[in-house]
Amino acid sequence: MSALSSTYAVVVKDVQSELRTRYALNALVMFVVTTVSIILFALRGDQPSNTVLAGMFWVVVFFTSMSGLSRAFVSEEERGTSLTLQLIASPSVIYFGKLLFNVFLTLTLVFGVTIVYTVVFPGFTIQSLDIFLATVFLGSLGLASAATIIAAIIAKANTRGTLYPVLSFPILIVLLMTVMSATVKSLDGEPFSEAMGDVVVLISYCMVMTAGSFLLFDYVWKD
């Protein structure tokens, strides 16, 4: 019970800290605005296919999350508070606290990008809401899970900005291909049964990534 309350306290601390410092939120908002503007300029009023729309949707989510999610550990390392956290809480408490915060941040990001896409691109109409919700939830969980452990690794490195997307891409490629495929199906209005294969892959990815990250985190976090 105390581990759960400690984990919850880490999440609350990160949310309060984020609302005051805007370390990640500002980066996320600016990135979404910039990338969507560039896409709009590139399209010049053309109507892209559902495949292109789904691809662009997750490209924006991927690069935006890369600019924001690393802050979970990098800001602790830069401010020198990571040692304080190490002293007062076990690695599992810190890992799950940071993971839940990143899931919350990613879901907020995906919700924001979905609204922007729905307003800006008339063709971005979600026909199968069940597929879209499952994809967005599992995709956000997988993205946050991978981003959390990679952030913990790169927080100790000197070349953080370069390392983050470089390390993330090969780890996230399977996730990105699957969520893009499932998003196309939700835009095409296919039944949920057609997306079952993608959903199973996403669930497996989330389980493997979370379990692997949890086992690895102790070594990454401590020394």
């Binding site: 601390k13 309060q16 800290s17 410092t21 401010r79 020198g80 508070t81 040692l83 304080t84």
Partner: peptide
């Protein structure tokens, strides 16, 4: 310790 820092925003 001088190495342990606090949260400046709080």
């Amino acid at each position: 310790s001088p190495y342990l820092q606090l949260y400046d925003e709080f």
